[in-house]
């Protein structure tokens, strides 16, 4: 372990921590609003540590969606990490197995982007640097979740302060963030229309599975295109 390298990582991660903090607090507050306890919210941040998928998880849980679909959705939202870990492998081959396991646990979008940049520039991605970068994002993420959750518990009516529109808007931002993917528009159009119809004719929570399956089936049947050159990342995501 090198102290110097560790603190360099901390400094590099600091601005990213600042950018991610509002989302940590938002997750905490909305988790309470969706029926989580403070413990559940922090437990999820500590163990999952992937903001966008955490938001999806609380919303689906609140809709009483079947557990398999909750897990599949979280898996799919996080699926891009497979590309990251594949690409990162060559830069961290000198880590011990335990260090590798910890490194992959901490592998968020910015963690990947900065490590890749460092590795590509010919610099060594040391475990100390990697850990410093990860710690300055991971630990405040937990603190912000806790703060948001405590705040969420103090709110009587979330509608009165406009909290109820934040999740749909956040999800809309995520949908827009995926717009460079193959067949994005037809998938979004079909899932949207089918889910609205299913909500009317079948009811919640079935509209989620029915709408999602319609979009995914469409994508699986459409002609295959070449894979995109680089992984599609979500700008702010922890």
């Amino acid at each position: 372990m090198s102290k110097d390298e560790f603190w360099q990582g901390v400094r590099r991660g600091f601005p990213i921590m600042l950018a991610a903090s509002p989302f940590g607090a938002l997750f905490g507050a909305l988790a309470i609003d969706n029926g989580f306890t403070i413990f559940d919210a922090v437990f999820m941040s500590v163990t999952v540590y992937a903001g966008a998928s955490q938001m999806v998880g609380i919303e689906l849980f609140n809709h009483n969606v079947q557990p398999w679909l909750i897990i599949l959705s979280i898996f799919a939202v996080n699926f891009r990490h497979i590309l990251y870990s594949a690409s990162l492998t060559r830069y961290i081959s000198h880590f011990t197995p335990l260090q590798k396991a910890l490194a992959f646990f901490l592998l968020t979008d910015p963690q990947y982007a900065e490590s890749e940049k460092k590795g590509e520039a010919g610099e060594t991605v040391s475990f100390s640097w990697y850990l410093g970068f990860g710690a300055i994002i991971y630990l405040p993420w937990q603190a912000m979740t806790l703060i948001g959750a405590i705040f969420g518990q103090m709110i009587g009516d979330p509608k009165a302060i406009g909290l109820d529109v934040l999740l749909p808007i956040y999800f809309m931002g995520l949908v827009l963030g995926f717009r460079k993917r193959d067949h994005w528009l037809p998938v979004v159009a079909v899932s949207s229309i089918v889910s609205v119809a299913a909500m009317h004719f079948v009811g919640s929570p079935w509209h989620v599975s029915i709408g999602a399956i319609a979009g995914v089936a469409l994508a699986a049947c459409m002609p295959l295109r070449n894979p995109p050159e680089e992984p599609v990342t979500l700008e702010h995501e922890v």
């Binding site: 799919a76 998938v187 709408g211 999602a212 994508a219």
Partner: peptide, 12 residues
């Protein structure tokens, strides 16, 4: 396609 499909059912 799963993320865009699932998320659309939460937005629309």
């Amino acid at each position: 396609a799963v993320p865009a499909a699932v998320l659309s059912t939460l937005v629309a």
